[in-house]
Design a protein around this nucleic acid. Sequence first.
DNA 1: GTGGATGTAGACAGGTCTGTCTACACGCAA
DNA 2: TTGCGTGTAGACAGACCTGTCTACATCCAC
Lengths: 192, 192
Amino acid sequence: MAKSIASSSAPPPPGARQRILLTAHDLFYRDGIRATGVDRVIAESGVAKLTFYRHFPSKNDLVRAFLEHRHQRWMDWFSTALQRHGGTLRALAPTLAEWFNHPDYRGCAFINTVGELGGDLPDVLEIARNHKAAMASAIAALLPDSADKADLASALAVAVDGAIIRAQYDPGPEASISAIAALERIVAALTR
Amino acid sequence: MAKSIASSSAPPPPGARQRILLTAHDLFYRDGIRATGVDRVIAESGVAKLTFYRHFPSKNDLVRAFLEHRHQRWMDWFSTALQRHGGTLRALAPTLAEWFNHPDYRGCAFINTVGELGGDLPDVLEIARNHKAAMASAIAALLPDSADKADLASALAVAVDGAIIRAQYDPGPEASISAIAALERIVAALTR
DNA sequence: GTGGATGTAGACAGGTCTGTCTACACGCAA
DNA sequence: TTGCGTGTAGACAGACCTGTCTACATCCAC
């Protein structure tokens, strides 16, 4: 009907909120959530304190928004990277190697957050469960149809989580080699 | 020589230090390290503040002692539990199931600590690496001799870490079932 | 009995944390 | 032009954090 007027409710503002969220993402992922104060997020996103608290009434709200944002960002990357590497199960290891070798790699944000806040913020357990279910679905999409496709994808997802952890505590430019080698061995054995 | 005099140096005191360490272990493992203030450790171990700081000049010293204590405690349990379940590779899954189903299960202290402090306290990366190397050795001890025993144990260790994570974010009295099922599937495939 | 190691009780300093509040500015739509 | 949504700048409160310090009590070896 009307030309450009988006009418009454909810015209998503592109400004401050996004800046806060992106800053929080980088800081939370790099330094951890408890180690990152909201003051720091406020300062680095160049926003006023009141503006921050208008968008995120409490730090926990920001944490939830961070995890949601991270979920979309990571799943988008994961899906396209798997396709880029061929879209079959053989794509799994090179895709993860790409991630592990990224200089900012600090493990899985969801695993880290469960470890840090799992006891205090019960929401994160459910958010992490949903994230890992989506990851398992993306892995299942690489598999040919079979009766136990879901179980196989579940076992592969466990192996992937193990590789993520290994690449985190055994880091370095090419130390992810052992994580990838272990993962490839498991993949090969599971699909023989 | 003398009857009961333990002579000059280092008679290990059984008192305050141990009480602090055990209290810290429980709190750090349950609530996380950053969430646990030294004041809390001091209060719950029933010790004076000065006594605490005489044994652990800084919180980081306590963290390192906690990890060392945890390492010995866990490795002792792991080794004996593996033996108790038969001492072969078939013992791996039931041993871990025992752990996952413990009501106080909160994942691997080393993985959690790396996620929480890995960036700030570089020591924990090395400590975690050593711990995981010891875990892999204990797994290797279950395997028959072969040329690639170490690599196989490494792959199994990655699968175990994955199962630890899965049992952590997908908890519950018997929800560790999926973690154990995935692990058993991987073990079976790797040793076929 | 003298001195040192070990212990208790608790005040204190200086920093950081989350969250609230006041005061002001700009753009846009009714 | 009036009012609302959105923004900035920054003071402030109250809690909690790590770490230091004073003052005193025991035990035990020499």
